[in-house]
Each structure stands twice: as C-alpha cells, then as structure tokens.
C-alpha cells in the first residue's frame, strides 16, 4: 500500500566536475511578492534542463556567491528552468538584481524528488507553507499534466500575510478547477483580505481524501511540517506515504562540504525530499 520509501532521484549530470557552474541566461524575471521573485533561465549553451519535481540547483551570482534553490518550474517543459527566490541574503539579493539577458551560474539538478509518478492512482494532499510552495509547484504541474492518473488532489497553502502569497494568479486558476481542491490561508491579514485566516493545518481534517490511499507531500517551516504530519497521522494516513522536504545550510550540494548533515543524512544527496518515516526521530530533536 505504501509508495516506494526511497524518493525518486535523478543526479546532476557531471559527476567528475561537480563544482563547476554552467552559465544560464535569464529569460524572464517575475516579481512574485515584495521580497520574492522568479527567474526563468535557459542554458547558455542551448538545450533543455531535465529535472524531477523537488530537486534543486545551486545558483551562482557572479562574484557574490552561490545558493541552493529548488526548481519551481514545470518538469514537462525542461527548456524553461524556473526558480523562485526570496531575497534575504547577499546572494539572493544579487540574483534579484538580474535582468533579462544576464547570466547565472547553475549547478545541478541535485537531490531526491517527490514521488510524483509513484503516487499515481492515489489521492494526493500537498501542503505548503510560505516559499515551501515553490518546490511543490512542479508536482502540481506534473499532476495537472496527468490529471486522470490521480484520485482527489488537495493543495493546502498557508503564508504569513496576503502579501506573502506566491503564484496568486495560478492559485486563482487552480481554485477555479473542478478537479483540484485548493485552500489558501494566511496567519494574519487586514480587513481587505476576504479569505481564510489561520494555520494551514486547520484544513487537513476537512479536506477530501481517502486516508488509506493518500500520499502527502509537505514543505514549509519545520514547525509547520511537524504540525501537518501530526494532523495527517491523526487522519490515519500511513506514515510510509508522508513525504517532507528539508532545508539546511548547503555549500557544495554533492556531499563534500558537510554543512547539510541532518543526523546520518546529507540533505543534498539523501534529500531534500525524505519519506517521513526515514527521518521521524530526527525531526523531533532540536539542534540536529
């Protein structure tokens, strides 16, 4: 009944020169929120950039630095390499200053993937908090492209305020579909917000899915993921079918630098997507 407990994996394609960035050209910049933007890239040398939903790249801003950013585009359209980035540090801010025609160094794709294909035939509950929607958007694209293969599909999304919501146009489109159950909430809002206020986990007991035949994919702040898992477990979803995406400091993305260790796991190569069962104990220890 469970999906394969090892998340699907596709490794970066240059195992012998893993630290070398490949130049990619900025095709388009889209401002998502006051501090978050999406870069659409294409390899400068031409060709496509195949990836699996949940994987990430290391993006290099010339002379400034490199950051791990998950791929937020459509895996069915690998000619567009899409990343959604929150400008919070020197490198992400430098990436935010790039314009069409500028160059970004890219290494990847790295890491494990959401079991999007393996979840076919089941219900799917996708739970995202804040920028955590970015690494889950490729799953939504994949599901919509193969909609008939899945049962009920629920997307629950929470952000701090309405101004922090990503992909609002897309969310509105998805909410308009009869084959998707999309719920959006914010932690706090002014009177101009007519949507739900509260934590995203409040939606879980009311969402329509068959717990015995559901795969859950969760990405957001760790505290939100712990709550979400708890609610899902209370609905009696098999814990084998719960997947989370983890974040840690990362310098190399290939298992050399040691920064992303999470107990015995390296987030860069064993994750970022983990089956909940494989990291259950670690997720509840502080300072791991």
């Amino acid at each position: 009944m469970s999906t394969n407990s090892t998340p699907e994996t596709m490794m970066g394609r240059e195992p012998s020169a893993p630290m070398l960035p490949r130049p990619c050209t900025v095709q388009r910049v889209r401002q998502e929120t006051y501090d978050t933007f999406t870069l659409e890239l294409a390899p400068a040398a031409g060709g496509a950039f195949p990836f699996a939903p949940g994987q990430f790249n290391m993006l290099y801003a010339f002379g400034v630095g490199e950051v791990a950013i998950s791929i937020s585009g459509d895996p069915g359209r690998p000619e567009k390499l899409v990343h959604t980035i929150r400008a919070v540090g020197a490198t992400t801010k430098a990436l935010g200053h790039l314009r069409r025609g500028d160059t970004v160094g890219v290494r990847g794709p790295f890491g494990s993937a959401w079991p999007a294909a393996a979840a076919a035939g089941r219900d799917l509950i996708i739970i995202a908090g804040g920028i955590g929607l970015a690494p889950l958007r490729p799953v939504v694209y994949h599901v919509l492209r193969n909609r008939q293969k899945y049962g009920n599909v629920v997307l629950l999304y929470g952000a701090r305020t309405p101004a922090d919501l990503l992909y609002t146009k897309e969310l509105e489109q998805w909410r308009g579909r009869f084959d998707l159950d999309v719920q959006v909430t914010v932690d706090r809002a002014s009177a101009s917000w007519h949507g739900t206020v509260g934590v995203v986990t409040n939606f879980i007991p009311r969402a329509r899915f068959d717990p015995s035949e559901t795969v859950a994919m969760i990405c957001g702040p760790e505290i939100m993921m712990r709550f979400a898992i708890q609610e899902i477990e209370e609905m009696e979803v098999n814990t084998d079918n719960i997947y989370v995406s983890m974040e840690r400091n990362m310098k190399c993305a290939v298992g050399f630098c040691g920064h992303c260790q999470f107990g015995p796991a390296f987030i860069c190569k064993d994750g970022p997507v983990f089956s909940y069962n494989s990291i259950k104990t670690l997720l509840n220890i502080r300072g791991i």
Partner: peptide, 24 residues
C-alpha cells in the same frame, strides 16, 4: 574531518571572480 565552506572573491573591478574552498 572534511567539512569546508566556500568563499567567492572578485578583483576590484568586479571583472574577475574566484571560488575558494576552505576548511570549515
């Protein structure tokens, strides 16, 4: 112990950049 960090440096003009790996 093998852990490292990386440092990105440039020349004063910002035309030349290097990445250095250092023990961390």
């Amino acid at each position: 112990c093998f852990c490292t960090t990386v440092e990105d440096v440039t020349d004063l003009q910002g035309e030349h950049a290097e990445r250095w790996q250092k023990w961390d």
